[in-house]
Simulated scan of single mutants.
Amino acid sequence: MTTQNIADLCAAHRQEGRSIVFTHGAFDLLHTGHITFLENARTHGDVLVVGVHLDRHIRAYKGRGRPFFPFVDRVRLVGALRIVDAAVECPDSNAVGLVRQIRPDVYVKDNQADVMRGPEAGVVASYGGRICIVPYTPGISTSLIIGRLRDADRTRPVPYT
């Protein structure tokens, strides 16, 4: 879905009286921490829109070898989740442009992010939106999974903890 299409979709939902929730991330190796986060985000409104970052932004942040899955796969996986109403490209290294376009009623991030210092916070505040911080799921992340896979005995399942 293009950013213009998502802006139009959000405007249509808003005209119907629905509130828009927005979040964004890499969603490289989709895991239960992501699902829990998205489920929590969903509880803060009627329509959940998720921005998925481009490969080059993840590489710049996470380093060589990341992401494991290309953008087209990651956005398709996120968009296929029944708790997500729309998944869209996050074209910048942050989500300021998308926040300006869709003007979510609620902007959601986890408590590992310094949301109030992020550039999105000022944009959300400028139009009276709300910022919501949901708990991070400890003990599971893509980076932890990668580390466990590298260290694991390949004959046994890799535990989360």
Rank of each mutant, 00 (worst) to 15 (best):
G118D: 04
G17V: 08
G147D: 15
M116W: 04
S19W: 00
H31I: 05
A41V: 07
I145Q: 03
R76S: 15
I131S: 05
I35W: 01
Q15Y: 00
I131M: 09
R103Y: 03
Q15D: 07
I58R: 02
A60H: 05
I145A: 15
H44R: 13
V108Q: 01
A80N: 10
V99Q: 02
C10S: 14
L144D: 14
S143K: 10
D110P: 11
G17W: 00
L77Q: 06
K109C: 06
H44D: 06
E39R: 15
D46C: 14
G79D: 11
S143I: 04
Q15F: 02
V78I: 13
H44G: 04
S126Y: 11
G63S: 10
R100K: 15
L81C: 10
P138Q: 15
S141T: 09
P159K: 13
V21G: 05
A125V: 10
A12T: 08
R56W: 09
I140Y: 07
L149M: 15
G25T: 08
G97F: 13
S141E: 01
A121L: 05
L29D: 01
H34I: 07
D114E: 11
A11Q: 12
A125E: 02
V96M: 01
M116V: 08
G51I: 11
I6R: 00
G51F: 09
R59M: 11
L9P: 00
G118I: 07
E16D: 11
V108T: 09
R154W: 13
I6K: 06
D151F: 07
P157L: 05
C90P: 00
M1V: 13
R74D: 11
P135R: 14
F68M: 14
R156N: 09
L48S: 12
H34S: 08
Q4M: 14
G129L: 09
V49W: 01
Q4P: 01
M116S: 04
A11H: 10
R66W: 11
Q4Y: 06
I35F: 03
I6P: 01
C132T: 14
H13F: 13
A95I: 04
A80C: 12
H31S: 09
N40E: 13
I102S: 03
F68D: 05
Y107T: 00
H24E: 13
C132Y: 00
V50G: 02
T3P: 02
D92F: 05
N5D: 14
D110C: 15
S126C: 09
D153F: 01
F22E: 04
P157R: 04
V134L: 03
C90K: 03
P91G: 15
V84A: 08
V75L: 07
F22W: 00
D153M: 08
M1C: 08
V88L: 11
M1F: 11
V72E: 03
G122M: 05
R103S: 08
A11L: 15
K62F: 09
Q4H: 12
A121I: 07
